[in-house]
Write a protein that binds this DNA or RNA. Structure first.
Lengths: 190, 190
DNA sequence: GCCTAATCAGGTGTAAAAAC
DNA sequence: GTTTTTACACCTGATTAGGC
């Protein structure tokens, strides 16, 4: 179950137990160098990451693996480790899952929220401008506005406050250094 | 780099590149079904998890691998994949540990604590930046902030002082301590 | 034994997907 | 486009366990 070694690609299918049947022991020591996609959030935090795939010479979590797969298909030989897409489209990788969830920075939320107040239904052009401003994709912006409209409809007061600030102590990313050495006393009340 | 296949144990040592030298491509599809130790939290949260070992038919992170190792030694053959303990006690898995507990340097504590004062809930981006600054994993940083919030809630005065300095001998590479011992008052405004 | 890093169990908000 | 659902990322609060 779920560990296979293939000597030559591409393989469209294989049965692991058969492939390895003559091996009494299979050992793989793998150093996972996380692909620094977006925020480098690959391994430890992209949670639930039970599934890993080897691509090129890197082990990627399922999420990042799925993201990279399309690219790989159009990539020429890069060395001794090449196209794995054939080998990887097997029963063991059935559902491309692990929906990547964007986590916005407060800055991005700030921008979107500020605009939302003026215009809850930005047109395509405006979406693109917001995308450029935030560095997010147009689609992500669009979804955010959709969700934001829905959210506000459910709870009208809700979105008068940028989400992160609801439980963030300080919304301010950086303060002057003297702020660091503030006297402490009652820190929190809740 | 960092992927090795061994056909026969026990091995006390091996050179990966040599072992695999005749393979043009090495493919390992690995579904890491986390050993449901407690909560099956193997991969994502036990941090550091750059190292994985294959045991029986499961890939375990270093932490769980080390935990399981003693058990395995007393387990009879369970199929085509058996005892790996011999094979795995190699240079790449030198120190068997249990729950790896990070011990922060004063520099790391300094960085985290300084940031904590201005922002008790750093967002993902900030966590990553702190991780980069300290050389710690994002997850470790996150846990520290969680614990720090909890700590401060329990004892408001507590975290006005960087923890290590409270009972650690020297550990004072930079910064004079009087910086830490400041008058107390209102730390936060909200 | 104390302090605290790491884990556990449970809860919340919401981005993305599905359904319409 | 909307509404509903799903699943992920993060939180708290309590607990467990590593290292002086």
């Amino acid at each position: 179950m779920f560990s296979k070694v293939i000597a030559e690609p591409p393989l469209s299918e294989f049965e692991g137990d058969e492939v390895c049947s003559d091996l009494k022991v299979f050992v793989a020591i793998i150093f996972i160098h996380m692909r620094p996609l977006r925020d480098g959030n690959c391994g430890p935090t992209s949670a639930k990451g039970e599934e890993f795939g080897l691509m090129e010479n890197q082990v990627l979590c399922r999420l990042h693996y799925d993201i990279m797969l399309p690219n790989l298909q159009h990539t020429p030989d890069k060395g001794n480790i090449t196209h794995l897409d054939g080998a990887l489209r097997i029963q063991y990788l059935p559902k491309p899952s692990k929906r990547p969830r964007t986590s916005f920075t407060s800055e991005q939320l700030q921008i979107m929220h500020t605009h939302f107040i003026q215009d809850k239904n930005p047109d395509a052009q405006m979406l693109q401008r917001l995308a450029d401003m935030t560095g997010l994709s147009r689609r992500v912006i669009q979804v955010w506005f959709q969700n934001c409209r829905a959210r506000q409809k459910r709870n009208p007061l809700h979105d008068s406050i940028p989400p992160r600030d609801r439980y963030q102590t300080s919304a301010m990313p950086f303060l002057s250094d003297n702020q660091y050495f503030l006297p402490l006393g009652r820190p929190e009340t809740h």
